[in-house]
């Protein structure tokens, strides 16, 4: 039986909770370390080590470095592990100053200056974006990532129809007003970025009537590129599918909730590192 462990750094535990929903592993794999559900002191030898959360404290860093030594394969799951995640919303000077002030508390682990991606410190074999990744993605990681079948982008998994002749004059943002079933959310004026977001989640958000906010990150076409390549392309989608003024599109897309997800492979991971190869991304 394959053995796996889950190391939870600074995150929300959503990734762990999603894994619990992939209950099929229970019969096939031995979970040897996952503080949320198993009492065990250290990560023992494992075939697969899943890491969630960003590296935010000196304790995170210590645990991370120890854990990878015992793992055959290291997988970064979720936006936080890949980019530092939602904590990067506060990656601004004034917020950073506040966080650094918090470092003075004695007796508790020291905060680092920001939430770092896991691969800033250790080599990662596989990246699984999503906030959190779905149960299906977790099962694919554990069984055989190469066999995982997914569409290139979320649009192909969403089932809503893009209408050529319906062009909203203005954007409604993310969530205002009625949502028609079956019709593409952009046709209805919503800021849906499913057209450039990598598939594999099966589009739960647009199916439920909420625009895709891009938590799976950029599709393969953009993943190794700078974020403004993605930005220009998504602007073109809105320019062709709506009659909204360019300034409105520009402003709408400059959104923190989109940025933290869509730039998880580029800017947010810390500009000067090499892009992560798309072959390593599930």
């Amino acid at each position: 039986m394959k053995r796996f462990a889950v190391l939870q750094l600074s995150g929300c535990a959503g990734c762990e909770v999603a894994l619990l929903n992939a209950e099929a592993w229970v019969a096939q794999y031995k979970l040897v370390y996952m503080p949320l559900v198993v009492s065990a002191e250290d990560v023992p030898e494992v075939d697969v080590l899943l890491i969630s959360g960003g590296v935010r404290t000196d304790e995170d860093l210590y645990k991370l470095r120890r854990a990878v030594k015992n793992a055959q394969q290291v997988v970064a799951v979720g936006t936080c592990a890949i980019s530092g995640g939602v904590a990067n919303l506060g990656d601004r000077d004034e917020v950073r100053a506040l966080f650094l002030a918090e470092r003075d508390r004695p007796h508790v682990p020291r905060l680092l200056s920001k939430s770092h991606p896991v691969d800033a410190f250790v080599a990662v074999d596989l990246y699984v974006p999503g906030c959190p990744p779905t149960a299906e993605l977790f099962m694919a990681v554990l069984t055989n990532p190469r066999d995982f079948q997914a569409s290139k982008v979320v649009c192909q998994e969403c089932g809503r129809q893009k209408l050529k002749d319906v062009k909203p004059a203005h954007l409604l943002g993310f969530q205002q007003g009625e949502v028609l079933p079956d019709v593409c959310l952009i046709n209805q004026g919503y800021l849906c970025v499913g057209s450039s977001t990598r598939g594999g989640c099966r589009a739960p958000c647009p199916r439920a009537g909420h625009p895709c906010v891009g938590c799976r990150g950029p599709s393969d076409v953009f993943i190794e590129k700078e974020s403004d390549v993605w930005f220009k392309s998504i602007k073109r989608v809105f320019a062709s599918m709506t009659d909204a003024p360019e300034s409105e599109i520009e402003q709408g897309l400059r959104s923190p909730q989109l940025a933290m997800f869509l730039f998880q492979f580029s800017d947010y991971a810390g500009g000067d590192r090499l892009p992560r190869p798309k072959e390593k991304v599930l």
Binding site: E59, V95, L98
Partner: peptide
């Protein structure tokens, strides 16, 4: 022993 700090993170959102 962890610090999430959303009161700071969401300022300006």
């Amino acid at each position: 022993t962890e610090f999430r700090g959303f009161e700071y993170l969401v300022k300006g959102a």
